[in-house]
Amino acid sequence: MGMPNRKYADGEVVMGRWPGSVLYYEVQVTSYDDASHLYTVKYKDGTELALKESDIRLQS
């Protein structure tokens, strides 16, 4: 078993793309699913969504 190939840690605050949009919002990573390679993130309004790594970026 190798290390999970994840870029962002639980609790890390990053920018997540809103689905169907080009806009990124501040989100907190809450979990990562090794099987689906999706991150569960929480937006400031409390919305929780699963995002692909390509829809997440570090805060500038």
Results as ranks from 00 to 15, higher is better:
residue 8 Y to V: 02
residue 33 D to R: 02
residue 53 E to Y: 04
residue 8 Y to Q: 01
residue 43 Y to A: 14
residue 24 Y to G: 01
residue 1 M to H: 14
residue 47 T to N: 06
residue 26 E to P: 12
residue 34 D to G: 10
residue 31 S to I: 02
residue 36 S to T: 14
residue 53 E to M: 03
residue 27 V to F: 13
residue 43 Y to C: 14
residue 25 Y to A: 07
residue 28 Q to T: 15
residue 20 G to Y: 07
residue 13 V to C: 09
residue 6 R to D: 02
residue 24 Y to D: 03
residue 2 G to Y: 05
residue 13 V to H: 10
residue 59 Q to A: 14
residue 46 G to K: 04
residue 35 A to C: 09
residue 22 V to C: 14
residue 46 G to H: 05
residue 35 A to Q: 13
residue 7 K to H: 07
residue 34 D to Y: 14
residue 51 L to A: 02
residue 46 G to F: 04
residue 27 V to S: 03
residue 14 V to C: 05
residue 19 P to W: 05
residue 26 E to C: 09
residue 28 Q to C: 09
residue 5 N to Y: 10
residue 43 Y to V: 07
residue 58 L to Y: 13
residue 6 R to N: 04
residue 45 D to I: 02
residue 18 W to S: 06
residue 38 L to H: 07
residue 28 Q to P: 00
residue 19 P to H: 06
residue 15 M to Q: 09
residue 27 V to G: 11
residue 24 Y to N: 02
residue 50 A to W: 15
residue 31 S to Y: 08
residue 22 V to K: 14
residue 48 E to P: 05
residue 51 L to P: 00
residue 49 L to N: 04
residue 60 S to A: 12
residue 1 M to W: 05
residue 40 T to G: 05
residue 10 D to S: 06
residue 37 H to V: 03
residue 9 A to P: 07
residue 54 S to Y: 08
residue 44 K to C: 11
residue 59 Q to M: 15
residue 8 Y to T: 00
residue 44 K to F: 11
residue 39 Y to V: 02
residue 35 A to L: 12
residue 25 Y to T: 08
residue 23 L to C: 12
residue 12 E to A: 12
residue 1 M to S: 15
residue 37 H to R: 13
residue 53 E to P: 06
residue 3 M to P: 14
residue 58 L to D: 13
residue 46 G to N: 06
residue 34 D to N: 11
residue 58 L to T: 14
residue 31 S to W: 07
residue 49 L to A: 10
residue 50 A to P: 09
residue 14 V to K: 01
residue 45 D to Y: 03
residue 51 L to N: 00
residue 31 S to R: 09
residue 39 Y to H: 01
residue 40 T to M: 12
residue 57 R to K: 14
residue 19 P to K: 06
residue 18 W to K: 11
residue 26 E to F: 07
residue 51 L to K: 00
residue 36 S to G: 06
residue 46 G to T: 05
residue 10 D to K: 05
residue 33 D to S: 08
residue 28 Q to D: 02
residue 59 Q to I: 15
residue 9 A to R: 11
residue 52 K to N: 10
residue 16 G to A: 14
residue 56 I to E: 01
residue 37 H to Y: 09
residue 41 V to M: 02
residue 17 R to H: 04
residue 17 R to T: 04
residue 5 N to L: 13
residue 32 Y to R: 01
residue 4 P to V: 10
residue 31 S to A: 13
residue 55 D to N: 05
residue 15 M to W: 15
residue 15 M to L: 13
residue 46 G to I: 03
residue 18 W to A: 09
residue 13 V to N: 08
residue 18 W to I: 09
residue 56 I to M: 12
residue 33 D to C: 06
residue 49 L to P: 00
residue 47 T to P: 05
residue 40 T to W: 12
residue 57 R to W: 10
residue 29 V to C: 01
